[in-house]
């Protein structure tokens, strides 16, 4: 289980009432949340919900209409250079200079931040596994290789915060797996806070410690993943029975809801066995017992109301 350092440590990113209006359309509406250090933080929302706009504001590519974004306490508006120095990012696709080699691209970004020795470039190239092709022109790279080069430029200066916008776009399953492992490694062993946006729910579930969900520019919810233990080991359990009404009556108020062909209760492992005994004693026939696991996808669709484009 992960050590979630929620109390006591300063958030790496703080969004305070961030609002973006273009014309009279409100793209981002009063967004407020904190990103705790050392976590992989997911930013989830359907297409067009404002994820990329938020990221653009976090790195200073777009201005906020109102509100404030702090990166390790530095304002992206008033102390841009100090704030952005701590950030490495890929915004949308990792677009590189195609007529330059991978190495020249990295050299380009390395020159923009003082104190990056050539050795560090080699190290990063090794890390993302591009050593064999780094001196080839980027136009000969596959999408996966460009994505790797994108990660390489983002981590060159060992940023405290790594922002990746839809990082799994265009990656094959092996590439996604590798990226996931690598991000987890960065967060766990190097203390880098990773902020990833995605509309791929299953992906986020595997990658993140915590997920903020936005829709139509509004924050819907921030929740922990792997958070099952929070309910004291209880889960929703479905009992398939012949007479749901009679079963509900037998259990009193413990029933969460009755469905066709069964009832759902909140119960731990032992309780489930007890409930089963009570049902049988009440003359209800039990055909099956199973826990109803709610995936992030269900939760997501539930909170966003089916994911209509906002």
């Amino acid at each position: 289980m992960l050590d979630l350092q929620t109390g006591g440590t300063e958030p790496v990113v703080r969004l305070l009432n961030v609002t973006k209006r273009i014309g009279n359309r409100t793209i981002i509406d009063n967004l407020t949340f904190d990103v705790p250090p050392g976590e992989v933080f997911g930013f989830l929302g359907p297409n067009g919900s404002g994820k990329t706009t938020t990221i653009r504001m976090m790195v200073g590519l777009m201005r906020m209409t109102s509100g404030e974004i702090l990166i390790r306490g530095r304002s992206i508006r008033t102390e841009y250079e100090a704030a952005v120095r701590q950030v490495g990012a890929i915004v949308e696709n990792p677009e590189m200079y195609k007529y330059l080699t991978g190495y020249q691209n990295l050299l380009h970004y390395a020159r923009m931040i003082p104190g990056i020795p050539r050795k560090r470039i080699d190290e990063v190239v090794e890390l993302v596994g591009l050593t064999a092709r780094i001196h080839d022109k980027v136009k000969t790279y596959s999408l996966g290789m460009r994505q790797r080069l994108g990660v390489a430029q983002a981590i060159l200066h060992r940023p405290a915060l790594l922002i990746l916008d839809e990082p799994t776009n265009g990656l094959d399953p092996a590439g996604i797996r590798e990226l996931r492992d690598y991000l987890r490694h960065l967060a766990k062993h190097e203390g880098t806070t990773v902020f990833v946006s995605s509309h791929l729910l299953s992906e986020m579930e595997l990658m993140c410690d915590r997920v903020a969900i936005i829709q139509a520019g509004k924050l819907i919810d921030v929740r922990l993943i792997h958070g099952g233990a929070e309910n004291g080991g209880k889960a929703e359990v479905l009992f398939e029975v012949d007479r749901p009404d009679a079963a509900a009556e037998a259990l009193g108020g413990a029933v969460l809801r009755a469905e066709s062909g069964g009832i759902v209760v909140s119960a731990g492992r032992e309780e489930a066995a007890d409930i089963n005994a009570r049902l049988v004693a009440a003359g209800v026939r039990v055909y099956g017992i199973r826990t109803v696991t709610k995936s992030l996808e269900d939760q997501f669709l539930e909170v966003t109301g089916g994911g209509r484009i906002g």
Partner: peptide, 14 residues
């Protein structure tokens, strides 16, 4: 037009 402007601007330079 190539989109490289994004990676160029997010550096500690005004």
């Amino acid at each position: 037009s190539t989109g490289t402007i994004k990676l160029l601007l997010i550096r500690p330079w005004s």
